[in-house]
Design a protein around this nucleic acid. Structure first.
Lengths: 113, 113
DNA sequence: TATAATTGTTTGCGTAATGCGTATGAAAGT
DNA sequence: ACTTTCATACGCATTACGCAAACAATTATA
């Protein structure tokens, strides 16, 4: 399940020791992840994704997309600044769009059934 | 960490029991995930993401800590990726949003004059 | 070549966390 | 009032995590 870890690490020319040090865990612990002997805790998994600057889904082999995406729901909850035509996007504008797109997606899914 | 689970479930009008049944686990087990009392195994996590048709990153509330300002027009032109509910935002969805918001802003400006 | 240093692999063990059944409480339906 | 559904909490057996340490394998340095 975590076969991609070895590639992510080797592409950075890091040893198991160095990777473990960067994660703040024991070498044998991280080695266990790569070998499939053990599974990381969710906390460790998040730190690994941060370290390799990719998504958890990519690490778990759930997608081929390495790119991290900016989640709009997150933008609503926090103060991440989006702008359109140089004008800051209000929460209301974003909220309307989220509702709008969710509705559109639901309709699309229904049509396909 | 798994605060989004309750919303994902409730937006589908599922009970804890029904969700647990769909996942093939005990109700108390799934309830433990939502309450934060327990953490799912990676296998369970993947099944949950599949059930709710979203990403593991979204379920884990993983935030990319880029605090930079993002211009939506640039998102259209480049490959800066947005997502909604853990599902990648298509260019078409983003384009509709831009047109929609521009129109709304124009109407609002006219009203204020 | 010999030797040290670095890297990768595996094991044993103490501890912590999981997952289930079950019990309890709350809310809703008949 | 009574039953049914729903949500939450607890006890406990089992699993498996994370670490240190030992071991093997590769590379570096003299």
């Amino acid at each position: 399940m975590l076969q991609r870890l070895a590639n992510l690490r080797k592409s950075r020319n890091w040893s198991l020791q160095e990777t473990a040090d960067r994660l703040g865990i024991a070498k044998s612990t991280y080695a266990g992840y790569e070998s499939g002997y053990r599974q990381p805790s969710l906390q460790a998994l998040l730190q690994i994704a941060n370290l390799f600057e990719t998504t958890v889904d990519y690490i778990l082999n759930r997608t081929n997309d390495k790119q991290e995406k900016l989640e709009l729901v997150e933008c609503l909850e926090s103060e991440i600044a989006l702008s359109l035509d140089g004008i800051p996007l209000t929460k209301e504008e974003l909220y309307d769009f989220i509702a709008f797109t969710r509705l559109k997606r639901r309709i699309k899914n229904n049509d396909e059934e």
